[in-house]
Amino acid sequence: MDRTLRDCLNLLKSDYVSGWSLLLLPALLSLAVVPSSTTTTMALLLRFLGLGVALIPLARVISRLVDHLSDHLGDRYSGVVSVGLGNLVELVVSIMALTSGLYKLVVISVAGAVITNCLLMLGISTVLAGQREQLVTIQASSTELQARQLMLSLLLLAIPTIISLGTGTTLLEGNDQRDSFALYSLAVAVMILIYYVLSFVLQLGTHRSFFSGNPIKPADPSTSRPSTETEHEHEIAAILIAMGVVSLAVVAISEPLVQTLEVLVAHTHLSELFIGLILLPLFGSTAEGVIAVGAARRGRMDLAITSTMESSGQLMLFVLPVLVLIGWPLGRFLHLSVPLNALGCTGIAVLAVHWITENNQLDWYEGMQLITLYGVILLGCLLL
């Protein structure tokens, strides 16, 4: 155990102590200069942006740790781990917003994170990968599953939204009353979570050989090396512990970030659509973006796709249903209903990703298509 902790500290020291650490200075400066009680738009934006920038070096450390982990587990399974850690920011931010009764911001921010991952982060990654080779080949089985997961998760959110509109529900995103739509959302959330767990049974259990990219071969006892296996386990444990430490640091920065966000929503003229769909996801999706861009620059596009597409699927199939469950004991009943403008933009992002990945090949121009779509959505939320 002592050796594992030492390896963990060495990893954090080597990956964190760099020029990227200087990005913590804007956060410290914004906390020192801008008081938390301020209500002016410019001061709140400076405080919010300073705290958001502080997430970037931490996200870089996560990306480096995922790179170390992929050497042991492979791109597919290390990507699954990175997805869980990357979405920790969105989950913490959403829980705090939920406790404050910001129902609309919760569902819009989840939709915004999906749009940011699928269009901006995957678009940049595809452009960078396309500069290395004309046609980037991606793994068919895992990409097809992730594209189907995204499409189905969109349908699972669209159905409650359509039903809520048809029944004339006034508070679409949630309220403080335990009504029939809150009960319906709870039942649907449980069904979605069961379906999401079964997807891991498929990937890591019954059809593991299809998604790992390598057939499973029995170990040869004559060539086994216990010492090497022990070394392998120590390294994986050290990487996972280091990831947990960095994730806690991300949570610590997220708390004042959310407090500033609440004041920003209450005392400024910025719309919840712009804040939730564009501004907040830019920082919440930093970890996935750094991982995806770094992987694409090294020619590991499968890891980039896992970090963006699977993260988006997890947001809709895991994070949002979990928020519905968490809200019940808090007396905050979140509905699985998304505003039509946010739902429509999310649908466009999902369809675009499904379209460019269906032939299991990518080029730089397809990446520009995704970035252009993101730019159109950004300008619409900002100007209209």
Results as ranks from 00 to 15, higher is better:
Q139R: 08
Q134R: 06
N175Y: 05
P160F: 05
G174W: 02
A237E: 14
L172Y: 00
G205R: 07
S153R: 02
L193R: 15
G130H: 03
I216N: 12
E173P: 03
T206V: 09
T143L: 08
D176T: 09
S227V: 09
F210T: 10
L204G: 09
N117C: 03
Q149K: 10
V127T: 00
L186C: 07
G123K: 12
T126I: 01
E231A: 14
G112E: 14
S94W: 02
H232Y: 09
E231C: 05
Q177L: 04
H234Q: 14
V190T: 06
N214S: 07
E231N: 10
I138G: 03
P215Q: 14
I192F: 03
I194N: 15
R148L: 15
L122M: 13
V114Y: 04
Q203Y: 01
L198M: 13
S185P: 01
L102C: 04
N117F: 01
Q203R: 10
A147M: 15
A187W: 08
E144W: 02
H232I: 02
V127R: 04
E235M: 11
V190Y: 07
I108V: 09
E229W: 09
H232Q: 06
I236C: 12
G166C: 08
R148G: 10
Q203C: 08
T137A: 02
P160L: 03
S94Q: 11
K217L: 11
T143S: 12
I159W: 02
D220G: 05
T137W: 05
S125R: 05
V188F: 07
E173M: 08
L156Y: 00
M96P: 05
M96S: 09
I124H: 06
P226I: 14
M191P: 03
L145N: 11
S109M: 06
S227W: 14
T228Q: 10
I115M: 11
H232N: 10
L119Q: 04
T143C: 06
L152W: 08
